[in-house]
Amino acid sequence: MMRKLYTIVIIALSLTSCEKVLFEDDLESTNPRDNFEYLWNECNEKYAYFELKNIDWELVKSEYSAKIYDGMTQDSLFNVLGAMLTELRDDHTNLISNFNISTFGVNYLGQDNFDWRIIEDHYLSQDYYISGPFRHNFLDNKEIGYIRFPSFPGTVDATNLNFVLNRYKDTKGLILDLRENGGGAVSDIFDILNRFVEQKTLVNYSRIKTGTGHNDFSDAKPVYVSPYNGIRYKNKVIVLVDRGTYSAGSFFSLSTKALPNMILMGDTTGGGLGLPNGGQLPNGWTYRFSITQALTLDKKPDYENGVPPDIQVLFDWSDLTKDEILERAITELQ
C-alpha cells in the first residue's frame, strides 16, 4: 500500500504527533542480535493486533532468537527477521533491505476469484470506457452499470466520477468490482463513498497505539462519510470483493456495512485495516507494521482478519466462460 494511505489517515485523525513518540532515534550496529532485539521490541510495544490474532510474541522471540548467531550473513539475518515478522500474519508488515523485502501474502488465504480476461471476453464489449482509474460499461441491456476499480491510486476526482455516475444515472443499479484491489490512497475511499450517501454517515471508528502495552490505545475516534455536493447515485450498489481486496479495499468494504444501499458480495477481504508506520533498524534496513485499528460500529477490531461479504459467492474455475460472482450481482440487481 502506498505511503499516502497511512499518511493521510493519521493526519486526518490528528495523530501525527504519535510518530515521534513511537519511533526513537536508531543506534547504528551491524550486530545480528542487536538488530533482532531492536525489531522484536519495536513490534512488542507498537504492533496493534497481538490480542485479536492471539499471537504469543514472547514465544516467537524464543523461537527466532535461537536462530541468531554471530557471523551470520546478511541474507541469513534477513530471512530470520523477515520470517519473524510474517508471524504477525499482516501484509502491512514488511522488512525492507536493498536486496529483499519480506511479505506475508494474505491473498493466498483464499482461492482466486477474478479474471479480467473473462469479463472482457464475455461481459463487456471491447469499446468499454476508461475514465481515470475506472474501467466501465453497461451490462444487461443497459439496465446495469459495471465499474472496475483495480486500485486506489489517488487520482479519483470530480471529473471522472461525474462522467461515470452521469453515464449510469438511469440504471437499476451499479456493480463496483474491487476484487484483487490491493489498496492505495485513502482519499479515494471518501471521494467515492460520498457519491452514495444522502446524509452524513458514521462508517467506522479508529484508534492508534499510544503505549507499550499490547492493549494501550487512544480513544476510538469516529469516521464519517458526508454527501458530495453534486452528482450522486441513489440506487443499489453491489461491491465485489475477495481475499485480494486489501487495505484501502477493506476500509471501503468495512464502510459499506453502514450504508443500506450497498451490498458486499464475493469472498471475505484480505483485511489490512491497521495503518502501517515504521522506522530503521540499527543496520539500516527499514521496517513497518500496523499501529492503528479500524473498528466496526460496535467498536470491535475483528474485521482486521477480513471483512465478510453480505452474500458469499466463489468463482468456478472449471468454466472459464462465466464469472459466477458477477452473474450473482447481475441477478441481485434485476
Rank of each mutant, 00 (worst) to 15 (best):
R3S: 07
L13F: 10
T16G: 12
T16Y: 00
W40C: 05
C43H: 05
N44Y: 15
N44M: 14
E45M: 08
E45N: 12
F50I: 03
V60P: 00
V60M: 07
S65K: 07
K67G: 05
D70V: 07
D70G: 09
G71R: 00
M72L: 07
Q74V: 05
Q74A: 13
L77E: 09
L88F: 11
N94D: 10
N94K: 11
I96T: 06
F99Q: 00
F99S: 11
F99W: 11
G105R: 07
Y108D: 08
D115H: 13
D115Q: 14
W116L: 12
E120S: 13
D121V: 08
D121L: 12
H122Q: 14
Y123C: 09
D127E: 15
I130R: 10
I130H: 11
G132L: 11
F138A: 05
S151A: 14
D157T: 13
A158E: 15
N160F: 12
N162H: 11
N166M: 10
R167D: 10
G173T: 09
I175A: 02
D177K: 04
N181P: 04
N181C: 15
G182C: 11
I189G: 02
D191R: 15
F196Y: 13
L202D: 06
V203M: 02
T210A: 04
F217T: 02
Y224L: 07
Y228D: 10
Y228R: 08
N235P: 09
N235Q: 14
K236H: 15
V237N: 06
I238H: 05
T245F: 01
T245C: 01
S247N: 11
G249K: 00
G249E: 07
S250H: 02
S250R: 01
F252V: 00
T256H: 04
A258W: 05
M265T: 10
D267K: 07
D267A: 03
T268F: 02
G271P: 10
P276G: 04
G279D: 03
F289T: 03
Q293Y: 08
Q293A: 00
K299W: 04
K300D: 15
Y303G: 01
E304I: 07
N305Y: 12
G306P: 13
P309W: 10
L314R: 15
F315E: 15
F315K: 15
D319T: 06
K322E: 12
I325Q: 11
I330D: 04
L333C: 09
